[in-house]
Computed example of a mutant assay.
Amino acid sequence: MAKKLHYFDFNGVAEPIRYILHYGKEKFEDVRYEYKNWPMKNLKDSLPYGQLPLYEEGNRTINQSLAIARYVATLNNLVPTDPWEQAVLDAIVFNIYDFWQKVVAYIKEKDLTKKQFLKKEIMEETVDYFFSRFEKELQKNKGFFVGKLSWADFVFVGIVEASNLFLGEEIERKYPNTVALLNKIRSLPGVKEYIASRKPYTF
């Protein structure tokens, strides 16, 4: 069954999905679009809600990055079978996306003065608010979010990397458990080879 992932030619919210697919040795077509050409009317009009990413599997499609990530993670044993652990991971992923929304607001802001203010707020307040909490979770769970490798770890690493791309920073540098998790994910079989083969991202 042919698999395709449609997204822009940078990391963003699709990179965790790419990581999971490569980790699982899944064969898929990594369809990428140049962001500078967005919105491409024909493409946008063809999407269920006019947004990327979109995942195809045969004649079926899913939109929404977290739904896609969770689905492909399920195929690769990265979602726990216990309902409570599932809920815990869902909460963690939503917390990660709460942080990401702050970065998205910065990305979308066109006024340079407001943009500078948002970045200052992110770097001086938002990062520590969230990452001090993420650090505690990782520390008490053997370097992962639930004691073993899961889809939340992939989502976290992808969002950290995307935030770094758009902010021009290394937001993880003061958080050793975060740095360790980034290194673990980047070193996984499949992921390591994918990272080595991709071109550097720019935005």
Rank of each mutant, 00 (worst) to 15 (best):
P53K: 00
G58F: 08
N63V: 14
P83I: 09
L66K: 03
D9E: 11
L181F: 09
V160F: 02
L47I: 04
K140D: 04
S65H: 11
D82Y: 10
Y49P: 07
Y23I: 07
K4S: 06
D111M: 02
R32T: 06
N37Q: 13
K41M: 14
I96H: 02
F154G: 08
P39F: 10
Q116N: 13
L75P: 06
K108E: 04
R198K: 13
T81P: 02
I122N: 00
L167V: 04
Q86C: 14
S150A: 05
V179C: 11
L138N: 01
G158A: 09
G158P: 12
L112W: 00
Q64G: 05
H22G: 01
K192R: 13
R18M: 00
L54K: 01
G58V: 06
G147H: 06
Y49N: 14
I17L: 06
E56K: 14
Y33A: 11
P200F: 01
A91Y: 12
F145E: 02
A2I: 10
K192M: 03
I107T: 04
K199A: 15
S65Q: 08
I107Q: 08
D111C: 04
H22P: 03
I20M: 08
D153V: 10
E56H: 14
R198A: 11
A87S: 15
I20C: 07
P39R: 10
Y35P: 01
S187V: 03
N42K: 14
Q116L: 10
L138P: 01
P176N: 08
Y129W: 03
A73N: 09
V155P: 03
F134R: 06
K3R: 15
L181K: 11
K110S: 12
L149F: 06
L112I: 13
H22D: 02
K36S: 15
N164V: 02
L182G: 00
E135W: 01
L118T: 01
G12C: 11
K102I: 08
Q86A: 09
M123T: 05
Y23F: 15
Y19C: 06
Y201F: 13
L47Q: 03
F130P: 01
F94H: 14
E137V: 15
I107A: 02
T113F: 03
T61R: 14
I96G: 03
A2S: 12
